[in-house]
Simulated scan of single mutants.
Amino acid sequence: MTTFALAIVLFSALLHAGWNAMLKAVDDRAGVLGAVSLAHALVGVVLIALSPLPALASWPSIIISTLVHYAYYLLLFRAYRHGDLSQVYPISRGLAPAIVAFSAWMLIDETLAPLAVAGLVAITAGICLLALQRGAAAAPRSTLGFAVLLGLCIGAYSTADGIGIRLAGTATGYMGWLFLCEAPVPLMIALHRRRNRGQFAPRTLVYGLLGGMAAVTAYGLVLYVKTIAPLGAVSAVRESSVIIAALIGVFVFGERPWPGRILASIVVALGVVALTWAG
């Protein structure tokens, strides 16, 4: 992975950890998720207007990714309702790199150099170590179940999008239709809120739209890098966002203990360096 690609993915990781931390901090998570999806759809409309139609071969990936994203949002809402940020986030994101690397090898015969494989293993190990710092083995089964299912969803849509965007012939066109397909999410949340006579606070909409812009920028950057770098490597570096989330957990939410998090951060950092050296 080149330095340019690495910088883009690390910036994406920062944005993603930030909006997930905001989602954990707010009370109206359903409202914020609805606004996040709305931001995706609005950006999608703009990208569609400025881009050609994606190639027919990429549409199965768009459909698969869209359906998996629906499940992802539902699981994300449930997971943060029952678990801590520094537990759910590393477990779910930590599963994704290995899933993506294995899927890319099986589906498109994409392999990594030995040093890159070592880097991926180090990143995954560091993420798992970070998850265990929160007592994952003793956590409620519901929290672990939601986190594991989230990881499977992340691996599934990451693989689908990595393959689809390469077949699309237009990165922005692929992103546009993928983002627009999230439009049913805010509509369903709004209808449910209306049936239950609930209201959206203006602050919820503002937070959601800001989080949505961070989310759409983060994933858009990752999709672009997947056109110029191996899927497994991109996914592994992308999940270094768990370190950022852990630091937010320590300094913003006051989560403890911190020594294990520092060790996990060093392991992940070494893995990122190995992936960069592997080229």
Rank of each mutant, 00 (worst) to 15 (best):
A118H: 01
L120C: 01
L120N: 00
I123Q: 00
I123P: 01
T124M: 01
T124L: 00
T124R: 00
A125S: 11
G126C: 02
I127E: 00
I127L: 08
I127D: 00
C128N: 10
C128P: 02
C128F: 10
L129T: 09
L129R: 06
L130A: 07
L130D: 02
L130G: 03
Q133C: 11
Q133W: 03
Q133N: 09
Q133H: 07
R134Y: 02
R134P: 00
A136L: 15
A138Y: 09
A138H: 15
A139K: 05
A139C: 12
P140S: 09
S142F: 12
S142H: 12
T143L: 12
L144F: 09
L144E: 02
G145P: 02
A147M: 11
A147S: 09
V148E: 10
G151N: 07
L152V: 13
L152N: 09
C153D: 04
I154P: 14
G155V: 05
Y157L: 12
T159R: 15
A160R: 04
A160E: 02
A160V: 15
D161P: 12
G164F: 05
G164W: 01
I165D: 11
I165C: 14
I165R: 13
L167T: 04
A168V: 04
A168C: 15
G169Y: 05
G169L: 08
G169T: 06
G169H: 07
T170W: 09
T170L: 15
T170S: 10
A171V: 08
A171S: 11
A171R: 14
T172E: 15
T172C: 08
G173W: 01
M175G: 07
W177I: 06
W177P: 04
L178P: 10
L178R: 08
F179M: 14
F179R: 04
F179T: 06
C181D: 03
C181P: 03
C181K: 01
A183L: 13
P184F: 08
P184A: 07
P184V: 13
V185H: 05
V185S: 10
V185N: 06
P186D: 03
P186I: 03
L187P: 15
M188E: 10
I189S: 05
A190G: 14
L191V: 14
H192A: 13
H192R: 10
H192S: 11
H192K: 12
H192L: 15
R193G: 14
R195Y: 10
R195F: 08
R195G: 11
R195C: 15
R195H: 12
R197Q: 09
R197T: 04
R197S: 13
G198P: 04
Q199V: 12
Q199Y: 06
A201F: 09
P202F: 04
R203D: 07
T204K: 03
T204E: 03
L205S: 06
L205F: 15
L205N: 02
V206M: 14
V206Y: 10
Y207V: 09
Y207G: 08
Y207F: 11
G208S: 05
G208W: 00
G208Y: 01
G208V: 03
L209A: 07
L209R: 05
L210N: 04
L210G: 07
G212L: 02
G212K: 01
G212E: 01
G212C: 05
